[in-house]
C-alpha cells in the first residue's frame, strides 16, 4: 500500500511541478524535507526514549498484568460469547492495554494472537468474522490511547508553545470514537439475534 502512495506522491509532485514551473522549489522541497526528517528524529529520540523507559518500568513491575486482570469484567461485557478463561480474553486485554499506553510493538503481536484464538472459537463459518472478531477490530480501530507520544514529539519539534496541551482533548475525542464503536457493536449483535 505504502509503495503506491509514496510513488504517487513523488510522481504527481514532479510532474505537477514541471507543468507549473516549480522545479527549483521541488528540488529544495526534497532536500529540505530530508533534513527536516533528521531533525525531527532527534527530537523524537528524547521523547520516545523517555516513554519506552517508563513503560519498561511499568512492564517489569507488573502494572500491565495488573491492569489486564482489572479489565476482565469489561472484557466479559464486550465479548459475551468468549469464555472468561479462554486465552483470547487475555490476548485482547493485553492488546487494548498496550494500545492504551502507546506500546505499538506489544499491541500488534497480542492483537494477532487474539485474532487467532478467536478463530478457534469460530468453527461454524471459519472464513467469516465472528461477532467477537468484528467487535475486537472495531474497538481496536476506534483507537484508545492515553498519551499520543508521537504527536507530542512532532508538536514540540514544530515549535508548539505547549506540546502536551492536546492530551486531554485527544482523550475526549478518542473516548467519543470508542463509545460510538461499542454502541455500534452492541446494536449489530442485537440485530442479528433479533432476526434469529
Amino acid at each position: 500500500m505504502l509503495n503506491y502512495i509514496w510513488a504517487v506522491l513523488i510522481i504527481i509532485g514532479v510532474i505537477y511541478g514541471a507543468l507549473t514551473g516549480h522545479m527549483a522549489d521541488v528540488t529544495n522541497g526534497a532536500l529540505d524535507s530530508a533534513k527536516d526528517a533528521v531533525e525531527l528524529c532527534i527530537t523524537m529520540l528524547g521523547v520516545m526514549s523517555l516513554w519506552t523507559g517508563l513503560m519498561e518500568i511499568a512492564t517489569r513491575s507488573g502494572i500491565i498484568e495488573a491492569l489486564t486482570r482489572r479489565l476482565l469484567p469489561v472484557m466479559h461485557w464486550l465479548f459475551p460469547n468468549v469464555p472468561d478463561n479462554h486465552p483470547a480474553m487475555s490476548h485482547i486485554s493485553t492488546n487494548m492495554i498496550a494500545n492504551f499506553l502507546g506500546l505499538g510493538w506489544a499491541a500488534t503481536p497480542a492483537g494477532l494472537m487474539a485474532m487467532k484464538s478467536l478463530s478457534e472459537l469460530n468453527t461454524e463459518h471459519p472464513d467469516s468474522a465472528s461477532d467477537a472478531m468484528c467487535a475486537f477490530l472495531v474497538i481496536n480501530i476506534s483507537s484508545i490511547q492515553l498519551i499520543p507520544v508521537n504527536i507530542i514529539a512532532y508538536r514540540s519539534q514544530y515549535g508548539s508553545a505547549n506540546p502536551a496541551a492536546i492530551i486531554c482533548p485527544a482523550i475526549i475525542a478518542t473516548s467519543i470514537s470508542t463509545v460510538a464503536g461499542i454502541i455500534f457493536c452492541k446494536l449489530a449483535c442485537a440485530r442479528k439475534k433479533g432476526l434469529g
Binding site: 506522491l9 513523488i10 504527481i12 509532485g13 514532479v14 505537477y16 511541478g17 507549473t20 516549480h22 522549489d25 521541488v26 529544495n28 522541497g29 526534497a30 529540505d32 524535507s33 530530508a34 527536516d36
Partner: peptide, 8 residues
C-alpha cells in the same frame, strides 16, 4: 515535501 513544493 515534493508534493507541497510543486504547488499540488
Amino acid at each position: 515535501g515534493v508534493l507541497r513544493a510543486s504547488g499540488f
